[in-house]
Design a protein around this nucleic acid. Structure first.
Length: 394
RNA sequence: GGAGGGGUACCCAAGCGGCCAAAGGGGCCAGACUGUAAAUCUGGUGGCUCAGCCUUCGCAGGUUCGAAUCCUGCCCCCUCCA
């Protein structure tokens, strides 16, 4: 199969930050029939979010072009813990945890990628078999000085924050993965550039043609500051409920709207121009459209409609949502604090008291001000805590 | 191996015998204002049978009427020297 460079290249380059080196990619396209694209996944975080989506979407583009996608589950490296972007050593995972996590991973991945055309490998397949001798050989390809060039290591080193030896092994092993699957291209977020570069060295060391590096932008999370990540709790999960996705998108700062249109919805330049003026004229509307489209993308049009209605009803009209948990009061009645605690709306009774004192607890719209309030069973009532927690009392 | 510095709540960080459930900042939660945006202002941020009590300042002991604060041992981190 011959690739038509002129047609293929623009598709490859859409929403890509780095393509290093581009010439090598063109060379590969010219002489190879089969292009192997590597993507490594860390099974320590089994919940995929929109940040991953940006990457998966890129892989899908490449898959549609006819490239072979090799999906590597880093079951072995997860036991090390990727130090990328970390200011601390990560906790290492046990074998059981890794196994458990990777199981849920793929149903999310294959929402985007074509299951039939994707090759799945586990890096323990080859890494677990390495001998101490092998490891010495592989690690000799890189130097401490070069390792310390890496941003996060440099920073930690400078600030006297510990770096364990095994963390140096992470990029090395990840690089070995590239050699093991004979990767032509590796795709990942921009924070992976360093690791990908190490891989090139290792491939060369073993006499292989180095991979081309292709990185996509990192997507900021709902806080608008940090990259989307489960550990920062600013993520929008791919499998979250439609209403939650909609709501979370609505809570992103305005400055992020454009980026989401571009990276998640994959609007082309022409459409993005329209989005730009849309945002300028009606930021709320632009965001609502974005939320709608993202729910549609991850669920369905139906779900998007429902999520939008739900949102408007609860947050614009301040009405009660239709689907809320119920709580049955005992005949003799129950203290308000107990109700909040037992129903799980709050995590402790102290929290319940605090919220009541802050007028955050409302019964049928009226603030409850007395923590000794006892509610009896007399018809349906709705309890609201904060902005978004509801409970139907019966 | 030697010398020195350090481990405090979600994070950073003050406190160095009682006035410490522990200053300050960040984050987060809630209230006001809003577009579940931003900005701003206010309050909160261990638990409980809540004007009191219980658990918390690396871990385990000890001194003391009383310890985050003093002593001993242990674990961990950093720096310099070797």
């Amino acid at each position: 199969m011959a690739w038509k460079i002129g047609e293929v290249l623009p598709i490859i380059k859409q929403n890509v930050v780095d393509l290093i080196p581009e010439e090598e990619l063109i060379e590969k396209l010219k002489k190879k029939d089969k292009i192997i694209v590597k993507y490594g996944a860390d099974p320590s975080r089994p919940d995929l979010h929109l940040g991953h989506y940006v990457c998966l979407k890129k892989l899908k583009d490449l898959q549609d072009l006819g490239f072979s996608i090799v999906f590597i589950v880093g079951d072995f490296t997860a036991m090390i813990g990727d130090p990328t972007g970390r200011s601390k050593t990560r906790p290492r995972l046990t074998e059981e945890e890794v196994k458990e996590n990777s199981r849920t991973y793929f149903e999310q991945v294959f929402k985007v990628l074509d299951r039939e055309k994707t090759i799945v490998r586990y890096n323990s397949e080859w890494l677990a078999r390495l001998t101490a001798k092998d490891i010495i050989e592989i690690s000799s390809t890189y130097t401490v000085a070069r390792m310390l060039e890496r941003d996060d290591f440099a920073k930690r080193y400078k600030e006297n924050i510990p770096i364990s030896i095994h963390e140096f092994l992470y990029p090395i092993f990840q690089g070995y993965d590239s050699y093991a699957v004979h990767a032509d291209i590796e795709v990942g977020g921009t924070d992976q550039v360093f690791n990908f570069l190490v891989a090139r060295e290792i491939q060369k060391h073993f006499g292989e043609e180095p991979q081309v590096i292709l990185t996509v932008p990192l997507l900021e999370g709902t806080d608008g500051k940090l990259k989307m990540s489960k550990s920062y709790d600013n993520y929008i999960g791919l499998t979250e409920k439609p209403e939650d996705i909609y709501g979370k998108v609505m809570s992103i700062p305005d400055t992020l709207i454009y980026k989401y249109y571009k990276l998640v919805l994959y609007y082309d330049d022409e459409s993005l121009k329209k989005v730009e003026s849309f945002i300028r004229e009606d930021p709320r509307g632009a965001k609502a459209k974005l939320a709608y489209e993202i729910v549609k993308l991850l669920h369905s049009e139906e779900d998007a409609k429902r999520a939008e209605e739900h949102f408007n009803r609860v947050f614009r009209e301040k009405k009660i949502p239709d689907n809320i948990p119920e709580f049955e009061l005992p005949k003799e009645g129950l203290n308000i604090v107990e109700i909040l605690y037992r129903s799980g709306l709050v995590t402790s009774k102290s929290e319940a008291r605090r919220l009541i004192n802050q007028r955050a607890v409302k019964l049928n719209g009226e603030p409850v001000t007395n923590i000794d309030t006892v509610l009896k069973r007399d018809g349906e009532k709705v309890l609201k805590v904060g902005k978004r927690k509801f409970l139907k009392l019966r």
